[in-house]
């Protein structure tokens, strides 16, 4: 289930009509249950691959699940109550955005829900007094500013090609989106890396590596079960982002899977061969290259 379109029931009318209620229900159950399994396995796979890149044996494939269960069983220790609320909100909005994508809902709305999830994490980081957490949150805000325009441009390009904001409109296309908006996809790669917090854009936090100048950045003050919530949300997030990628090749299962796999491998590769950038450099680079590519692509769509 690495992609959104893959979960489309066969009875679905590909003309772009709504999913039936029963199918929708099962799709939601599938999304809630299977997505974290896939996300956890992918996280484990990634850590394994990275270890092999570095000439190490690496952790077992299911390591991410061990970590999650262990964290869940640790002593709950929150700095304040509102911090916990934000952790739950982060997870909740992340699940909602994934489900909305699975159900083929309005892309603009999905992106706003997705941003909501990020905002919840930022507020959680700002709600405590730790300077690491605060500076991590500030950086996360900068990242939000950096990638949001690209996502909006992606939706605009999507609308221009399909004539609809609904994600399920992509399922009825004659040819994959990637033929018409390839540059947007390239721009999306930067969003992908920023959101999954990999080098060179792992500025705000990192889950599995010691993060240097900010200790753990935005999640410094979370511990035990609350950290588990954020970890779980990150799995949903990974599946959600891969689903967005799969949207670019929504006409065939295999194409979508291949595209998602390519993005995943690129992510791992780039993470391994780059050091961390400063945030000023990130803003400059992503806006110049990422936003530039997306704008060129959208302009071409409107002109051609």
């Amino acid at each position: 289930m690495g992609c959104a379109c893959g979960d489309r029931p066969t009875s679905l009318d590909v003309g772009g009509s709504a999913v039936s209620v029963t199918a929708g229900f099962w799709l939601m159950v599938l999304g809630i249950v299977v997505a974290p399994l896939v996300g956890g396995l992918l996280t484990g796979l990634e850590r394994k691959v990275i270890a092999r890149f570095q000439g190490r044996q690496g952790p077992p494939l299911v390591q991410a699940f061990y970590d999650l269960i262990k964290l869940w069983q640790k002593q709950p220790r929150a700095v304040n109550r509102i911090q916990v609320v934000y952790a739950y909100a982060h997870l909740f909005f992340m699940i909602v955005s994934l489900l909305a994508l699975l159900l083929g809902q309005d892309l603009l709305m999905i992106l706003f829900i997705f941003s909501f999830a990020s905002v919840a994490l930022i507020l959680g980081g700002l709600s405590v007094d730790s300077p690491y957490s605060r500076i991590g949150s500030q950086r996360e805000i900068v990242q939000l500013l950096v990638y949001e325009p690209i996502l909006i441009l992606m939706v605009i390009a999507f609308y221009k090609v399909t004539g609809s904001f609904m994600a399920r409109a992509a399922w009825g296309l004659g040819q994959p989106l990637i033929y018409q908006i390839p540059l947007v996809l390239v721009a999306f790669l930067s969003v992908f890396i920023i959101k999954l917090r990999k080098s060179p854009f792992d500025l705000a936090t990192q889950l599995h590596e010691p993060h240097q100048e900010l200790v753990k950045g935005i999640i410094t003050e979370y511990s035990g079960p609350h950290l588990a919530l954020i970890e779980l949300a990150s799995w949903y997030e990974m599946v959600f982002l891969l689903g967005l990628v799969a949207l670019f090749w929504s006409t065939s299962w295999i194409g979508a899977l291949i595209l998602a796999a390519v993005f995943f491998s690129l992510l791992t590769l780039i993470d391994n061969v780059t050091p961390r950038a400063t945030y000023a450099w990130m803003v400059k680079f992503v806006w110049k290259v990422g936003l530039g590519l997306a704008v060129v692509n959208v302009t071409c769509l409107y002109l051609g």
Binding site: G55, D202, P210, Q212
Partner: peptide, 16 residues
């Protein structure tokens, strides 16, 4: 130093 740049794989190579 590689670790300070956030370059984990280079850190590993250097220590190897």
């Amino acid at each position: 130093a590689a670790d300070a740049f956030g370059f984990e794989s280079l850190f590993m190579q250097a220590w190897r």
